[in-house]
């Protein structure tokens, strides 16, 4: 099962790499929009999987693997700290709150949607 999670994570990480480059090509990288969108999308889909009550194999492959590897906490923390380092405290607070509160709302909403489609 660890290999299943690992395989899923390669797909997720490549998706994150591609999406980061795509978003940054339009938006630039002054504000970490790419990571925010990635984490939001991942929270919505992971919530859906949980509410839908996916089987164990699907949950490990798509949840732990693909979505776990797609979303990232380390990049999020680092971007928060770099905004603080640049003394852009307003941008830092906005990014932090949007990520955390938005992620929680989307995970809950995804769970509800998954429960509906079960």
């Amino acid at each position: 099962m660890a290999a299943v999670a690992g395989l899923g994570a390669t797909v997720g990480a490549l998706g994150r790499y591609g999406m980061t480059r795509l978003v940054q090509s339009y938006h630039g990288n002054r504000w970490p929009l790419a990571t925010l969108l990635i984490n939001w999308l991942g929270c919505l889909l992971f919530g859906f999987l949980t509410g839908w009550q996916a089987t164990n194999l699907t949950a490990v492959l798509l949840g732990t693997g693909v979505l776990g590897g797609f979303t990232t906490y380390s990049t999020f923390s680092h971007e928060v700290i770099m905004l603080a380092d640049q003394r852009r405290y307003g941008a830092m607070t906005l990014y932090l709150l949007l990520s955390i509160v938005g992620g929680l709302i989307l995970a809950a909403g995804g769970g509800w949607l998954g429960w509906l489609f079960r």
Partner: peptide, 8 residues
């Protein structure tokens, strides 16, 4: 690291 598992 993972953001989605954390939120869920």
């Amino acid at each position: 690291t993972t953001f989605s598992t954390f939120s869920v």
